[in-house]
Design a protein around this nucleic acid. Sequence first.
DNA 1: CGTATTGCTACTGTAATTGTAGCAAAGAGG
DNA 2: CCTCTTTGCTACAATTACAGTAGCAATACG
Lengths: 129, 129
Amino acid sequence: MAKQAGSKPRSVRGSRTGRPIMALLDLLGRRWALRILWELRDAPLTSRALRTACDEASPTVLQARLDDLREAGFVELGDGSGYGLTALGRDLCETFMPLHRFAERWKGPSPSPRLRGEGRGEGEPPRRR
Amino acid sequence: MAKQAGSKPRSVRGSRTGRPIMALLDLLGRRWALRILWELRDAPLTSRALRTACDEASPTVLQARLDDLREAGFVELGDGSGYGLTALGRDLCETFMPLHRFAERWKGPSPSPRLRGEGRGEGEPPRRR
DNA sequence: CGTATTGCTACTGTAATTGTAGCAAAGAGG
DNA sequence: CCTCTTTGCTACAATTACAGTAGCAATACG
């Protein structure tokens, strides 16, 4: 599996199959990508303000992600208000809104994963090994 | 590779604010996390089959992500069918389904970000610097 | 017993991310 | 013009996550 000896693997990682969903899943699967979209959901932010909103993340990654998202057409640099979502980006953000409700119901990685008796009378059935 | 040095790296990066949405955004923002959930959306897969489905990703990351998702309560290891989504995970996956339609309409990061006259007629306004 | 499959770990590179410092280009005010 | 502040952005070094490959223990089957 030589990967891509000649050309730079600049394209999206999961996109090798050609399916756009994979490209999107990979782009959003980079660090701070989802967070940036989330913080920009209401109003545009300057790069500095965005950094503050993103828990003082490094400007290096923020800039890299911002470039990625800008290249993807989700984010654009306005005139005086800094970075903001494009119409497409706003549309994508709408897709993620249900996630908010889901997160509230989820409350983070619980130490006790037994949240619902899925059907079997569990108690810790010995995994087949 | 300490991985369990003391008791520190247990929490999620974006979770420092306490908001569950941040924890979720960070968890899903790790590599292959979204992809794994996506590949498991229909039926459970064995670890080997999942690896094949995920473009032969390294078992190292796959195992790490599988652990994360399992700890979060989204994925569980069945008896004979391998890994599968929990009821909660299936619910989360439902949230992501609209992403599929969105991706189809998006078609990946285009070299020319001007994909459609999206409404605002800005040709390419000089950025303020 | 021999073979195959499954879940999982160990290891070595490489790419990505973090953290800090700093720059050039505007604006605001004097 | 000169100073001061903000903004977008870049240059590094250090750390971490990830990719790739190899392999093991446990089960299942013939």
